[in-house]
């Protein structure tokens, strides 16, 4: 059972690293599909915690999310398995390029086309993930307004780390002012 979980973590993150172009948040739809919807190893809310954490802890987002999700699902061994998976494919690909094609310049039109295509495909995938997340999170007027404010701030150019920090402070304030109501509304939204 444990071994199966470790393999799933390694394999999923290796797949993400081998297929997905665009770094960090582009990994999200695959993570959501595998761990939240199909295997049900973490909840949508826990995935949101991981995303917030990735903005607060230093380091590249891919490694942060691999470690956090691996840790959540299977402890320290899970974190190592997921991290190894996230690193290995791109490490090998780049090693191959650096070793055998040191002068490679990436100007093949089909190659560029395929990458533009993947970026567009990822746009569609993230749009679906965003839609689902928004429907689950925006359960009341205050939540809708807060999310709208976050999107506006991000478009304005405020850095994600600051945004999460302000959200935490504001959210905590609101949470303790109206704890009971939120509790009721959240449990209503769970159904």
């Amino acid at each position: 059972m444990m071994f199966k979980k470790l393999w799933l973590l390694f394999f999923t993150f290796a797949k993400i690293s081998a297929l997905v172009v665009g770094g960090g948040l582009a990994m999200l739809p695959v993570i959501e599909e595998t761990f939240v919807r199909r295997k049900k190893l973490i909840t949508q809310e826990e995935l949101l915690d991981v995303i917030a954490l990735c903005q607060m802890v230093p380091g590249i987002i891919a490694a942060n999310s691999a470690v956090s999700i691996g840790m959540k699902i299977a402890g320290i061994a899970g974190a190592v398995a997921a991290l190894t998976g996230a690193v290995l494919p791109s490490f090998l690909v780049i090693l191959l390029i650096a070793w055998f094609f040191p002068g490679l310049s990436p100007e093949n039109p089909y190659w560029l086309g395929a990458f533009a295509g993947i970026r567009a495909g990822v746009t569609g995938l993230i749009a679906v993930t965003a839609w689902k997340t928004a429907r689950r999170t925006a359960v009341g007027t205050v939540e809708v307004l807060a999310i709208a404010a976050v999107v506006a701030a991000a478009l304005w150019g405020v850095s994600p780390g600051i945004i999460i920090m302000v959200s935490i402070i504001g959210g905590m304030f609101w949470f303790f002012c109206s704890c009971k109501r939120i509790g009721k509304r959240l449990s209503g939204g769970e159904k």
Partner: peptide, 22 residues
């Protein structure tokens, strides 16, 4: 729970923002 309540709203907003970026 209070911290995570705010952090989740922030994260949800950032995912929507990621759609714009992509």
């Amino acid at each position: 729970q209070g911290i995570l309540y705010g952090a989740r709203l922030g994260a949800a907003g950032l995912i929507i923002f990621a759609v714009v970026i992509f």
